[in-house]
Design a protein around this nucleic acid. Structure first.
Lengths: 342, 342
DNA sequence: TTGAAAGCGCTAACAT
DNA sequence: ATGTTAGCGCTTTCAA
């Protein structure tokens, strides 16, 4: 079933059918209707490979996710896919491991599938500009930005929260409740990614409050997964008994941390407060409800696609959007009792 | 940058380059090496649209997910994507709403993108055979099967647990602990999908135990999401005070139910036991740890892709795989105290 | 307003 | 072992 078949049935040429299919103006109303009619009757669907070959690009957008384990990403993928489809594009989905290079993966996809653009989730992006030039399509970093790289602002787009600032806010919320011995549970202090940025916010808040950084209260888990976070929290508990609050740099880690505290006989929040960042669905159903800074996941996903489409369709240049979080006070943080203020 | 450029640089014809690229045998070692060399130097990547056009099909597999909110699906998507890529194919990802028709969505994708096959997640599939015939590529139902439809076994593949039987096992675990007033929290009793099957298992277990079905203990939430499950559980609590256990047909719903019980002053498991099915990551970190039947998500995803590839590559016919679950005894179920046995 | 025809980049049949 | 060439299905000039 090709455009020829349709043309044959209608007694017109293939170019006329093509015009109808692509909404070109120069077609008589009568012909247009007949073609559309036959198309519907025969359930004809154009062959995208042929279209893409002629136009030398597909109506496809690539989504490269590094570390699909992260439940926060799941909440981003949904609005991203929805928005892409609404705009008439298709999503090619690719996940890579944390140790893989998202730029290389993206570049390969673009070349082989003729993608129109890319969205990255969970990338590092401390790449040199010449590396990023491998990507000859627009791309947007979703939920992070090129904080550690040398990319020029006008060469890529991003939609993210201000990780450093928001982490600072999270820690300040704990400080406000009187906590002074505040531990941090994170992936790594120097991963050139989210984790490091949020760590910087943590350090900044402590320093502003006149508190010294206590290296013994910094627990690195290497990965984002819950099992690692649980294990990390247990190490911390075994090692120290004097902290009264924990800042987990992601909700999933915070939930695992609460579990570890509970399993080790420490009550949240009475014995130890816990705060996270992300606002994943699950965190509203933990017991107690996690206190966290909620990222606007829907808006973040939609905006990322919007920026990309604006670039692809030539409506705008690269832009960088900073979205605010909303503090949800759950039950996992409480005011420090005076006698605990060791 | 096309195959012609490569041919030019190497002083050979395009067909020779094509042969090298496709690992055809009839190429001298010297030429093969030179071509590969130039390909690497120039970072040449073949244009898939052109390839697909010639071969009239792409190396793409479609994944149609109905109801992406379900966290269990997330754990399936990962192994599915991984296996697809390992086999040299690409994933085209499409999500639809619960009210949408996955068959229609799949058929459109197949036609326009020339997909080689489809994997469905969360479909209903009570479709008539003539509807399924719209799909002229092999497809596999992942984590469910065509229980309510008239499809012939040899016309599709599936990889799933025995939902009815496993639901029965879950309820039997509660019965074994002495529970008699067992409520069920589910999507719908007649959705022609997972929910209905698990409901049938629930009814079967009760009936085998000589217990009458108490309609007042059946709570339908209409959707799978946690907010709905929480609300449903609250309705149940308000309505009845005599049940001692709840079977939630999905882990996400079970976690929300535990939260609702807690927020309404009922302790899990002392006042009410909770059991789920799925084994999502989060359920191991709820407090208490959820008792649940764990589905082998990794294996389920991998096997689905394997079956599909076997079909696509002509190695095997359609098959139907039933995978077992593993009961994880968490802390959300306890033995009924005698005095509670009202 | 319509049609004829030239490619888009690649594969594979056929020729050498 | 290698080259020549005819399409794959479509869009888009160019001509009518």
């Amino acid at each position: 079933m090709t455009i020829k078949d349709i043309a044959g049935r209608c007694g017109v040429s293939v170019s006329t059918v093509s015009r109808v299919l692509n909404n070109h103006p120069d077609v008589s109303e009568a012909v247009r209707e007949r073609v559309l009619q036959v198309v519907k009757e025969l359930h004809y669907v154009p062959n995208n490979s042929a279209r893409d070959l002629v136009k030398s690009q597909a109506d496809d957008i690539g989504l490269v996710v590094r570390g699909v384990g992260n439940p926060f990403f799941t909440e981003l993928i949904r609005p991203i896919e929805r928005t892409i489809v609404q705009a008439g594009y298709t999503l090619t989905f690719h996940q890579i491991n944390t140790e893989d290079d998202e730029l290389l993966a993206g570049a390969g996809l673009v070349r082989s599938k003729k993608l129109r653009g890319l969205i990255f989730l969970g990338g590092c992006f401390d790449y040199a500009p010449e590396r990023a030039a491998l990507l000859d399509v627009p791309f947007v970093c979703c939920s992070y930005t090129n904080s550690f790289g040398m990319l020029r602002k006008e060469n890529y787009s991003s939609v993210t929260i201000d990780d450093r600032q928001e982490a600072r806010r999270a820690v300040e919320e704990l400080l406000r409740q009187g906590h002074k011995k505040i531990a941090i549970l994170l992936d790594s202090v120097c991963d050139r990614s989210i984790s490091q940025l949020r760590y910087m916010g943590y350090c900044g808040a402590l320093s502003d409050a006149g508190l010294a950084l206590d290296a013994g209260l910094v627990e690195e888990t290497q990965t984002f997964d819950m099992a690692a976070a649980y294990a990390g929290m247990e190490r911390l508990i075994k090692r120290r008994s004097d902290f009264t609050a924990v800042f987990a740099i992601a909700d999933a880690m915070a939930v695992a941390a609460m579990k570890a505290l509970h399993d080790n006989g420490r009550c949240v929040p009475q014995d130890c407060s816990v705060i996270g960042i992300d606002g994943i669905a699950m965190s509203a159903y933990s017991i107690p409800t996690l206190t966290t800074l909620i990222q606007p996941a829907e808006e973040m996903g939609e905006t990322s696609v919007q920026l990309l489409l604006d670039m692809i369709e030539g409506r705008a240049q690269n832009r960088h959007i900073l979205l605010p979080t909303v503090l949800r006070r759950g039950g996992s943080v409480c005011t420090l009792r005076q006698e605990d203020n060791r």
